[in-house]
Structure formats: structure tokens, C-alpha cells
């Protein structure tokens, strides 16, 4: 959903503390080839409708992935995770065409592959659009 993507990028650009640690940027689905670490991508992996007689709620699952190549302890990527959560968990997004209801963290998975630290964070975003 283009509106959600636009809102997340805008949020990233608006939160200086996050940009200061996630210096490689935050991208929709795919980062450009050769993007410098640390960086993040997000992807809309599920969007389901919930209807009332007067409106529709869009129930979205957005998956964030953040990567850091700083070897050794995970202190660096833990700090990035903290800033991602501070910026997005319970935040208020401005989403075109929709009434924003909530963005809430649902799950976190930590991983290390070939020396690259990775956090996978799932957020649930609920939006509403009036049908009346």
C-alpha cells in the first residue's frame, strides 16, 4: 500500500534519533545494491479487511528488517532496534486517504547470518476508511 510506505518513510525522516543510528537508510522492500550498513527495509506482508456497515478497517502487518555489519557484540544493532521501536511503536502515522488507528509491535526476532546482525520486527498497523 503506497500510502503506508509513504507514511513510514516520512516518519523515518522525521525522527532524527533514528536517522542518526540507522545511517544507511530505510527502504520499502528492497535496499539499493551496495547500501552501506547499517540500514533497514520494511515490507507490507499482509493486509486484510475488517468491515463494519459504515467503514472498513485495513489490518496491515508490516515487517521491518534492520541490518548491521558491526561484528562482535550486538550492542550496535540493539541500539538501532531501540530507536526503531521508539520511532514506530505506538506512534501516529499520517496516512493519506485513511484514518490512522494504531501501529503496534507484535514480534521481534534476532539473528546473525555470515557476520551480519539482523533484527526482524513485526508491526500491526490498523487504518480505517469511511464508506458512508
Amino acid at each position: 500500500m503506497q500510502q503506508v510506505s509513504k507514511a513510514i518513510i516520512a516518519r523515518y525522516n522525521a525522527v532524527a534519533a533514528l536517522k542518526a543510528v540507522l545511517t544507511g537508510g530505510l527502504y520499502d522492500t528492497e535496499a539499493p545494491q551496495g547500501t552501506a550498513y547499517p540500514y533497514g527495509v520494511f515490507q507490507l506482508i499482509s493486509q486484510t479487511d475488517e468491515h463494519t456497515f459504515s467503514d472498513v478497517k485495513e489490518n496491515c502487518i508490516v515487517q521491518f528488517k534492520i541490518y548491521s555489519n558491526i561484528s562482535g557484540s550486538s550492542v550496535a544493532i540493539d541500539l538501532i532496534l531501540k530507536q526503531v521501536l521508539a520511532a514506530f511503536n505506538y506512534c501516529t502515522l499520517t496516512v493519506d486517504d485513511y484514518t490512522f488507528l494504531k501501529m503496534q509491535k507484535e514480534n521481534i526476532i534476532k539473528n546473525k547470518i555470515d557476520g551480519i546482525w539482523e533484527y526482524l520486527i513485526l508491526f500491526r498497523i490498523i487504518l480505517a476508511v469511511d464508506r458512508t
Binding site: E50, H51, T52, F53, S54, D55, T132
Partner: peptide, 12 residues
């Protein structure tokens, strides 16, 4: 669902 002409919003 209407009460008279007033729509009761949010009902599912």
C-alpha cells in the same frame, strides 16, 4: 442500522 434517520455508525 438506523434509529429513525440516524445511522448507528461502526456496527458490524
Amino acid at each position: 442500522i438506523l434509529k429513525g434517520t440516524t445511522n448507528i455508525l461502526g456496527m458490524a
